[in-house]
């Protein structure tokens, strides 16, 4: 009993407790009031908002869900009245394509850029001719150093 209170009270403090006979409806209702924006206090969803309009829209959402409406039917109902802005999860349309695609496009551009940068770094010309390199190798052999450079003072 005590545990039940701990869980239920924070939710009941703001949003009316609604009882659904069907747990699937309850889940849809809870999902919808989190996905729909309160248009008065524009940075809150219906679940978080105490505005009068949010209360009315929660009531509407509950009625629609109890009538057996699907998620997309609830979304259509709200969008036809309040516009796309009511959705926190915008639909994929011509207008929102840029929004949805930009993370993918930006990632691809970034990957392309990194790959190009790395290819360039490895293939970058050193500015020394083949003769210069030959002479350098000869000098290294002369001094007994085979090219494995070691920090001064280390054993080896």
């Amino acid at each position: 009993m005590a545990a039940w209170f701990c869980v239920a009270l924070p939710a009941a403090a703001k949003v009316e407790v609604v009882g659904f006979a069907d747990p699937a409806m309850e889940a849809l209702y809870q999902q919808m009031i989190r996905e729909l924006r309160c248009l008065v206090c524009q940075n809150q969803n219906l679940a978080d908002s105490n505005a009068d309009l949010a209360k009315d829209l929660r009531r509407k959402t509950r009625e629609l869900v109890e009538d057996g409406k699907s998620r997309s039917e609830v979304v259509d109902y709200m969008v036809s009245r309040y516009g796309e802005f009511v959705l926190y999860r915008p639909r994929f349309t011509a207008a929102t394509a840029f929004l949805w695609m930009s993370p993918l496009v930006l990632s691809l551009i970034l990957i392309w850029w990194v790959l190009r940068w790395r290819r360039r770094a490895t293939a970058a010309p050193t500015g020394y001719s083949e003769d210069d390199l030959k002479r350098a190798r000869a000098l290294l052999e002369e001094s007994g150093d085979n090219g494995d450079r070691q920090p001064p003072g280390s054993a080896g």
Binding site: L39, V40, D52, L53, D56, L57, K60, R81, Y82, G83
Partner: peptide, 13 residues
């Protein structure tokens, strides 16, 4: 009184 028509008209303020 209960604002149902307001919802149909998309009234938000």
């Amino acid at each position: 009184g209960n604002g149902d028509v307001g919802i149909d008209y998309g009234v938000y303020g």
